[in-house]
Write a protein that binds this DNA or RNA. Sequence first.
DNA 1: AATGTTATTGCAAATGATTTTCAATTGCAA
DNA 2: TTGCAATTGAAAATCATTTGCAATAACATT
Lengths: 136, 136
Amino acid sequence: MQELKGQRVTNQRRLLLDLIRRVEGHLDADELYRLAKARDPHVSLSTVYRSLRLFKELGLVEERHFIEEHHHYEVKGGIEHHHVVCHGCGKVMEFECPFVERMKKDASNKTGFHILGVEVSMEGYCDRCQERIEGV
Amino acid sequence: MQELKGQRVTNQRRLLLDLIRRVEGHLDADELYRLAKARDPHVSLSTVYRSLRLFKELGLVEERHFIEEHHHYEVKGGIEHHHVVCHGCGKVMEFECPFVERMKKDASNKTGFHILGVEVSMEGYCDRCQERIEGV
DNA sequence: AATGTTATTGCAAATGATTTTCAATTGCAA
DNA sequence: TTGCAATTGAAAATCATTTGCAATAACATT
């Protein structure tokens, strides 16, 4: 967005980005911190946050807002997908949504916004939790 | 979810729910606190949070997760709608989305989840901010 | 390889949002 | 009107994230 001069490729950044890429799924800052510390015991949590913000600004990772307070991060790129979160156990599943393009146009017409991103998040109960609750 | 015994109808709860209902839009906890304090100077912020949580659990209000850290709340009921948030000025607009039912079925088939809620949130730039940025 | 500049780091303290603790108060059923 | 449990306000605690600052490390230039 701004400040694109002289970013440096540091060990911690390499490590962190590598981890985010390797671990597929939806890491939060703390999980990433723990993983990173396992490999390099003196990375700091601040650096994790700072790097996440940088990666986000550079468009390398995306930030997700699920039910919880804290955020989750995943690599950008690949197929666009969306998320269902289970209220029972917190499980997150991804799915592709064939309607987003149409929704985008539709919403743009209705609101006058120039729309950059669409996030569809659903909540409910995963198959396992349905059984547990309904006692099938 | 649990504990549905003996809830009491107190002045502050009446006041808070009344405010949320009266003020249409997307209040956050702090705005609600300020509004409430204007009418009854000694409501506390804790009570605002406690009441919001209660209302949410009772299904009276819904919690929204926009770009910002803190949450926004709006009365449940009325027509189901979704949100676009402007990156430039933070403006939030609502729109109705004709695809949600289809999306819900589609996602349910794909993931096996029993889906209770769908939230479509879009981000971009509102008409005013588009002009400002593109210098039209 | 040695140097200087400047981005980056780690740590600790600061912040912002929300939750909890606890003693005092209040709603409500008896 | 009494009694008890639910609710409240105020302050402290917690959780997620950010920031200030002095020490360190990257990288371009000698």
